[in-house]
């Protein structure tokens, strides 16, 4: 196993597969998790897979410039802001309702 890993350097296909897998795991988490924090974590996974995409394409498609890496840095910063906002809302809601189970978020059905 170790020899195989040492002899094979991952190319862009492997990296893209990794990012697509991360994206799919994240999407699965969003669709199946019942706890809002779990959903937020899954969304973060999706955002990070997209950031990984930018870095991979930067390395393999356009290595002359660093546009992709800069984008990834911005994505990380924005994702952090998104988590802060999301968690703040969840905490405020938890104080009021005592739950952040998304299956019970149905007070507004007509």
């Amino acid at each position: 196993m170790l020899e195989f890993l040492a002899a094979h350097k991952p190319g862009h296909v492997e990296w893209l597969l990794l990012s697509a897998t991360l994206f799919a795991i994240g999407l699965y988490g969003v669709l199946t998790r019942r706890n809002a924090v779990g959903i937020l974590i899954s969304v973060e996974l999706m955002l990070n897979s997209a950031a990984l995409n930018f870095v991979v394409f930067n390395r393999f498609v356009a290595p002359a410039a660093c546009d992709g890496q800069i984008t990834a840095i911005f994505v990380i910063a924005v994702a952090a802001a998104e988590v802060v906002v999301g968690m703040a809302i969840f905490v405020a809601l938890f104080r009021h309702r005592g739950t952040i189970d998304v299956n019970r978020m149905n007070t507004m059905k007509d």
Partner: peptide, 13 residues
């Protein structure tokens, strides 16, 4: 709060 929760999840997605 529920509106915020739904909006933040859908918006982030």
């Amino acid at each position: 709060g529920e509106a915020g929760l739904k909006y933040v999840i859908v918006g982030a997605l």
